[in-house]
Write a protein that binds this DNA or RNA. Sequence first.
DNA 1: TCTGGGGTCCTAGGACCC
DNA 2: TCTGGGGTCCTAGGACCC
Length: 420
Amino acid sequence: MFALVDCNNFYASCERVFQPQLKNKPIVVLSNNDGCVIARSNEAKKCGIPMGAPAFEHKELFEKEKIHVFSSNYALYGDMSSRVMDLLTEFTPEIEVYSIDEAFLKFEGFETHFNFEDIGRKIRHRIYKGTGIPVSVGFATTKSLAKAANKVAKKFPDKTSHVYVMDTDAKRIKALKWLAVANVWGIGHQHAARLEKIGVKSAYEFTQLSDEWVKKHMSVVGLRLKKELQGTECLEMEIPASKKDIATTRSFDKNYTEFDDLKERVSTFAVTCAEKLRKQKSCANTLMVFLHTNGYRKDLPQYARNYLLQLPFPTNSAIELSKQATLALKKIFRKGYAYKKAGVIVMDFSPENYDQINLFNNINPKHRKLMETLDQLNEGMGTHKIKLASQDLERTWKMRQEKLSPRYSTRIQEAIKVKA
DNA sequence: TCTGGGGTCCTAGGACCC
DNA sequence: TCTGGGGTCCTAGGACCC
């Protein structure tokens, strides 16, 4: 049996934990730069705020409905997430953290001895008591079905109390007939549109298509999904692997036109990539820089380029990556455009302590010590106290975060105060 | 005025090999 | 007019996820 445990409206719930007076009040959480709505409490959903809605278009609705608006606070959500995941390991050693707010659990050999309804209720209770976050739990015999079961648990709280066990074929079929094909895990916009065109509306109807059709139009990924929905296990629990790509990209709060401004941004992104690389003890062999103008501004000239370069040797040095990223930026920067977004992506990793034989170039051994020291200092002092000269010109760049909540759970100065 | 960020997997087609 | 067969590796692009 697989369980999918999913935190309800996770970011909104995290904010509510520390402001319990917001219980039953509508809450939304915005993306970086306070751009779009990326999380909504149930009450906010009822007010008709769509997922991904640009904040500026809904300002009036926010006011009218007295919606509590938050900038995203990833320090808080990340910490709350690891608390939730820690508690989940009490129920089974087999856990796959699938995203910041979801995990698969596997229960093997328990089938005849355990009452999964009961386990589900215990999980909910434990997580709520331990973190204040409400979760929904779906049980089924494959991961894809567990995802579907979770949707049932979430959609019918009155009937399920947020726990649904899909343990018979009758329940499976009933759930799949209810589940719209567009809401199936693994079916996105494109496939949903194609399926609806041929008259397939429910997940159940999808499972009735021929293997050949599914394979032809949706590749083996679609075929695996079909089997999974029929109850044949095709997707295993995954062990966390090191990342294969690492990206640091941002939209800017305003348009940038000058090379030096872009250079400062790109250099900083490279430094962050280097830090992420060191955290997983990898070195990158390839680096890409991209930049583009604001695609929504049809009135302005548009420009978008990326530049991919092979690094002279595998590295996770902030100095080297910053230097190479600046070189790449020089190749694609054109004057006369208003840039809105840029990013650095590093790829093609090798292990940190694997010294490739390279006759002419290799990492400057001084960088290694320097990076270690940098990591230690930044860890002790809070992020990014120590920077490269190329990062700070005259100005410090800021994200727009007008509604940021405190980092209650990770900064002692920002912890919640309880009156005696 | 304002519209997020960071990942994974699969396939088709081209280049190249013997 | 006709011009083999069977591989591998790489890349770009498309699809998906949260």
